[in-house]
């Protein structure tokens, strides 16, 4: 699905990301962990062609993201609030994304039925603009919005932050389900090692722009990760 080739991002003399090679096959759930400044968000921005790489490239589904826009049909993302449109009602936001991804209103409606539990009656038909929702509810809108329109690749930056414990557990189940049942590729970044190990089959640890660990998740993974980050 994703091929990273000699990808490098540099600001002045500071290298913020340097990935010589990385392949993420289709249907993998990929976890990205690292301390602040490790380059997680930079990596996501590069995959989405929101910033220009200093050198190298990202191939998404066979096309270079900075040369063709074909990848946009199959890719969706929720990185932060700038992916929301504050003055829309959540319903309108979902319909708009549906419009852009060729889903009819009816299809969006039937898709949203599954999220009633997650939304907890605080999102749909509440007559509240997205900008007036709480941070947690905004995140729910963004994450669910990123699932609309059958994308094959989904990027989520810190999806568990700001969510209440119940929703965190629900979201984890949801992500596991779409990877296992629907064969989607999901990239998740998080500061919470527990969550990542629960969700991802593969976990990559970034430190100051470099990949320092590439693990396939098993019983030992959490421990191993804790050791990486345990600085005495």
């Amino acid at each position: 699905m994703l091929e990273i080739n000699n990808l490098k991002k540099q600001y002045g003399s500071a290298i913020v990301l340097n990935i010589p090679e990385l392949n993420i096959p289709k249907g993998q759930s990929f976890g990205l962990v690292g301390n602040n400044g490790a380059g997680k968000t930079t990596f996501f921005n590069l995959i989405l062609d929101l910033i220009r790489p200093t050198s190298g490239y990202v191939m998404n589904n066979g096309v270079k993201v900075n040369e063709s826009e074909e990848w946009k049909y199959k890719t969706s993302a929720y990185l932060d609030e700038s992916f929301l449109i504050g003055y829309l009602l959540p319903d309108e936001y979902f319909y708009m994304l549906g419009d852009l991804r060729n889903w009819s209103k009816e299809k969006v409606d039937s898709f949203l039925v599954d999220f009633d539990e997650l939304f907890n009656g605080e999102i749909l038909e509440t007559k509240k603009y997205i900008r007036d929702l709480s941070k947690g509810n905004q995140k729910k809108v963004g994450v669910v919005g990123a699932l609309i329109g059958d994308p094959e690749l989904i990027l989520l930056d810190e999806p568990f932050a700001n969510l209440d414990p119940t929703t965190q557990i629900r979201l984890k189940k949801l992500l596991v389900k779409i990877v296992n049942d629907e064969k989607k590729t999901v990239l998740v970044s998080s500061h919470n090692l527990n969550h990542v190990t629960d969700v991802a089959d593969r976990i990559v640890v970034l430190e100051k722009g470099d990949i320092i660990k590439d693990l396939h998740t098993n019983e030992q993974t959490l421990k191993e990760l804790e050791e990486v980050f345990n600085v005495e």
């Binding site: 946009k72 992916f83 991804r101």
Partner: peptide
């Protein structure tokens, strides 16, 4: 500008 990153990562021409 507030949501330009959304627009730029959607399949918008």
């Amino acid at each position: 500008s507030e949501y330009i990153r959304l627009f730029m990562s959607q399949n918008i021409k």
